[in-house]
């Protein structure tokens, strides 16, 4: 009873809440880091150094008037933010934050579940997330959002191909689709896959920037061109859902990158006995540190680079990243077969 029901439920509650809090603080992190990059201070007023800013933001967004444009498709307009948010959250079901540990005398796994098609599950759930953006643009019945949602869907579909192909290369290395299995494979190979698959890793990082609509690929919400993009007509909590979904997706891709390319919860050089004094650090801390590095990178890129144009984005995706990803995949396959 406890093992089958209470513990999973508890884990789900913890992960969901941690994610949502993490997402709001991700926003603060972004504002702070960008502010520092631009010789500003960032939020300073709510709490010391603006530490309570996310809470103030959340309260503000919840209290705001929720406007539905008169000529919008009301039904679709309402579900679009939900469709955006749900996939971003349910992906966490298969993210392994750590291995099996004993907690209060019980063996507990630090992941909600480990299904044998975990990676495929992430990819497929993420592909459903596109609907939120497309439908938001369509349902607003407004031109700028429509243009943005067309951009968004074309972009997401294109880069999904490249990203998925790099994932396949990793799967070839690990021989399993299970997220936990992939970490274990890196442990037994004594190698983080980022070093075995540098090209795949590079394409994955670029592709994931595009898939999460982050700079320099933030065309769907290009404020300067499309006045906010697909969520132009949204306000209040519905807007907040889009916002949260974007940051939740960032955390997802960081977690996936950590798991697939940087050994998940493993400490650096897990088989080097000389470093075993590091073992007092819990495994999930390593996971969080590695993910944080990625998140920081996302923010850093946003503060540095200008934005791509739509046609350049497409050219980069189809003419460079996808062929490279395919070549990498074929090469990986040949090497694997040669080694076996």
């Amino acid at each position: 009873m406890i093992d089958g029901f209470v513990i999973p439920l508890l884990k789900i509650v913890i992960v969901l809440n941690a994610t949502l809090v993490g997402v709001t603080y991700m926003v603060l992190l972004e504002r702070k880091v960008i502010a520092w990059a631009q010789s500003r201070l960032g939020p300073m007023r709510v709490g010391p150094h603006g530490i309570l800013q996310p809470i103030a933001d959340a309260v503000k967004l919840m209290l705001k008037e929720d406007i539905t444009p008169a000529r919008a498709d009301k039904w679709v307009f309402t579900v679009a933010p939900i469709i955006s948010m749900v996939p971003a959250l349910i992906v966490y079901a298969v993210i392994p934050f750590g291995p099996e540990v004993s907690l209060f005398g019980r063996q507990v796994t630090l992941y909600i579940t480990d299904i044998n098609v975990g990676l495929l599950y992430i990819v497929s759930v993420a592909s459903v997330g596109v609907y939120g953006i497309i439908l938001a643009g369509y349902a607003s019945n407004s031109k700028f959002p429509l243009l943005a949602s067309l951009r968004a869907s074309a972009q997401l579909i294109s880069y999904e191909v490249a990203v998925t192909l790099t994932l396949v290369s990793v799967v070839l290395m690990s021989g399993t689709l299970s997220m936990v299995g992939i970490v274990r494979a890196q442990e037994s190979a004594h190698l983080w896959f980022a070093f075995a698959q540098p090209l795949a890793f590079g394409i994955f990082v670029i592709g994931s920037l595009a898939e999460t609509n982050r700079a320099p690929f933030d065309l769907p919400e290009a404020e300067q061109e499309l006045t906010g993009g697909f969520h132009t007509e949204y306000s209040g909590m519905r807007f907040a859902l889009f916002f949260l979904a974007e940051y939740a997706n960032m955390i997802v891709v960081s977690s996936v990158a950590t798991t697939l390319f940087f050994g998940g919860w493993l400490r650096p050089f897990p088989n080097w006995a000389a470093l075993s004094f590091l073992d007092f650090i819990p495994s999930w801390t390593w996971f969080l540190i590695k993910s944080f590095v990625f998140l920081y990178f996302f923010v850093w890129v946003r503060a540095t680079l200008p934005r791509y144009r739509y046609d350049q984005l497409m050219r980069l995706g189809w003419k460079l990243l996808i062929p490279l990803a395919i070549a990498n995949l074929v090469l990986t396959g040949i090497i694997r077969v040669a080694l076996l």
Partner: peptide, 16 residues
């Protein structure tokens, strides 16, 4: 100009 093309840091530097 830089802001329009998406490079927002330059905006704050130039204004500084």
């Amino acid at each position: 100009h830089a802001m329009d093309i998406g490079a927002m840091t330059v905006f704050l530097y130039a204004f500084r």
